[in-house]
Amino acid sequence: MPAEVGATPSTSPGKTSRRRSRPPSTSTGLERRRSLTGWTFLIPASLVILLMSFWPMIQAAILSLQTGRGRDLSFADPLWLNYQRMLDDEILKQTLTTTFIYLIIQVPIMLGMALILANLLNDPNLRFKGLWRTAIFLPSAVGLVSYALVFRTMFATDGLVNDIGMALGFLDSPVNWLGQTWSARMVIILGLLWRWTGYNMIFYLAGLQTIERSTLEAAKIDGAGPAKTFWYVTIPQLKPMILLTAIMSTNGTLQLFDESYNLTNGGPGNTSMTISHYLYNVSFRNSPNFGYAAAISYVILILVAILAAAQIKIGDTRD
């Protein structure tokens, strides 16, 4: 039976053929004119990005080949000196490791939870739908400064989490959550989950609205339970949206700054610090080294690009 259920959406004739091939071209002239229309649609948005993002990025690329302090910069010899230098940078290695720990643990849990929550909220028979939806979304509306403050207070040694844990018997003595490497990282991960799960849920909720209810009904008629319907019917149709959120979250995590800066300030001993936090320190806290900072930022760019390409390869079914 699962096989049949699984087959339902992907064999629905219209969809696959639509994805795999272009609409049959009746006349190439018309085709070309439509393609031109397409270009006019996307040019304004693209131009803004090219001017506001790529121009500065090119400047940053040039900067990454320069060394010196302050504005006293000159081209490095060899040109790739800043990149070579990273191999000996212990703090960079540490922050890179920490960032990947956040990525690997937090992103799958968050997206999984967001998917399940969105799916539960999409149930037409669910009661108090608006209430649940609002409650779960609300954390994304809170500013970063304040949420760091609230989490820090809750996880303080004499804070609420320890009080509750001891009252319920989970803990024998207060834990110094923010004072130890792994528990500090865990607090950051919890903070990220709290703040961003509802945010990702919005994308799934929007995506779910575009799924035709009839496919879900069909699965039900075929006798599939909610779990199977979710897995074999809903998820495949949400794939474009899952891909989007996965790329977004990967990018967001590799550029994670605020949580590291505000919640733990990188501590204890730099062990919860992210690469972007380090990048900020190199640029604005320490004696400014913008050439090196630009080189680090290009490493982040390359890492995100590789991971995004991999995700697109796995998740994008159109071509």
């Binding site: 990005i49 990048l279 640029s283 930022s297 760019l301 690009a305 995004a308």
Partner: peptide
């Protein structure tokens, strides 16, 4: 275009 968001803002802010 997607590449544009993959670089930390701290690096492009000054240009």
């Amino acid at each position: 275009l997607l590449l544009a968001v993959m670089i930390p803002f701290a690096a492009t802010m000054i240009p």
